[in-house]
Simulated scan of single mutants.
Amino acid sequence: MLRSLYAGISGMKANQQKLDVIANNIANCGTTAFKSSRVRFQDMVSQSMSDASSSSTNTGGVNGKQIGLGVQIAGIDNMVGQGMMQPTSRNLDVAMDGEGYLIVANGPIEGTIPVDTTGHTMGTSTLNTSYTRDGALTLDDAGHLLTSDGLRVMGYAINSSLSYANGATTTTFVDANGKTALTAGTELIPLSIPDKITVGSTTAKVKSFSIEKDGTIKATLDNDGVTVIGQIAMATFNNPAGLSKVGKNQYASTSNSGQAVVRSGLGDTTNDNSKAYGNMLSGMLEMSNVDLAEQFTDMIVASRAFQAMGKTITTGDEILQDIIGLKR
């Protein structure tokens, strides 16, 4: 059989997969913090018709003769570049201006994740963790800070400001004006923004709250006091393109992404790495980084290449028909 038939088939398969990736990029052009993908091709093994030979006394060297046997997918890369920032004026919307990811988890509210403050890595936990850059956060009826899909947003308690016992949330007043040193805990816990804060022997109602650039959640009380509720944790990876997309704007770490490196909490002056994570912008969301002009151009190229591969198969079929017709 003609090699062009199989080369044409490989080209059609490769360009069909490229069109699948392009279609997914275009479909997610409005998805919050979506990272587009690209397809790279590589040639398949080549058949040698003759080997190369070196020069001799009477003749010069001769190059080898090879015929390629088609194309295949070399890789599908995640393009982790940052998308445009879209203002929303909603205090629970946050955008990561940098390479950070929110750490989210599902599991019991009392669950914690230990953090090695020296290596900034996370230990084992009963919680199932994943990562996201979708900062459209919500609150449930108990005040727990969640993603749109109900996953718990993990962070640090500041000066033991937040704790859980038997399903109940305890939030104590921590002066945000710096009269006492603000120090984060050594483990990540699910964050909450309650309606009331315990102030000594009394309680005060939360009038408003805000999320600072370093992820610190501050609340203004009805007694005009300002308290620190907690600090939203962030993580980065040595190879963020190696993260695995698991749907719902979530990512899972893989052997090639490396371990999550957790941002230092407030008060860590010995092994502080917080400056490498960028800022957390409140009242904004990161948009998709899909470039529609680029995607439509790639779609035209892929569709024409697909048609061209189909034409090589048709031409090969005509040649075979002529060969068969030699004997009448």
Rank of each mutant, 00 (worst) to 15 (best):
residue 323 I to L: 15
residue 83 G to C: 07
residue 89 S to E: 13
residue 262 V to H: 02
residue 90 R to F: 00
residue 56 S to H: 00
residue 163 S to C: 01
residue 303 S to Y: 07
residue 215 G to K: 08
residue 30 G to Q: 13
residue 170 T to V: 10
residue 121 T to Q: 12
residue 220 T to R: 04
residue 323 I to G: 06
residue 256 N to C: 03
residue 208 S to V: 02
residue 127 L to E: 05
residue 312 T to F: 04
residue 197 I to V: 14
residue 210 S to P: 06
residue 55 S to N: 07
residue 255 S to H: 01
residue 206 V to A: 11
residue 29 C to T: 10
residue 72 Q to K: 15
residue 132 T to V: 08
residue 45 V to G: 01
residue 306 F to P: 03
residue 253 S to L: 07
residue 24 N to Q: 10
residue 55 S to A: 15
residue 158 I to V: 15
residue 221 L to K: 03
residue 62 V to A: 11
residue 173 F to N: 03
residue 185 G to Q: 10
residue 184 A to E: 00
residue 236 T to Y: 04
residue 18 K to P: 01
residue 275 K to A: 14
residue 39 V to Y: 05
residue 219 A to M: 08
residue 302 A to G: 02
residue 290 V to E: 03
residue 130 S to E: 08
residue 178 G to C: 13
residue 12 M to Y: 11
residue 24 N to F: 02
residue 41 F to P: 01
residue 88 T to F: 04
residue 303 S to I: 02
residue 67 I to M: 13
residue 3 R to M: 10
residue 292 L to K: 03
residue 197 I to F: 02
residue 260 A to P: 05
residue 204 A to F: 00
residue 285 L to A: 13
residue 295 Q to H: 09
residue 55 S to D: 05
residue 43 D to G: 12
residue 296 F to M: 11
residue 161 S to N: 10
residue 190 P to V: 07
residue 177 N to L: 11
residue 269 T to P: 04
residue 114 P to A: 09
residue 230 G to I: 09
residue 135 G to H: 12
residue 202 T to C: 05
residue 79 M to W: 08
residue 57 T to P: 00
residue 22 I to P: 06
residue 58 N to E: 12
residue 239 N to I: 00
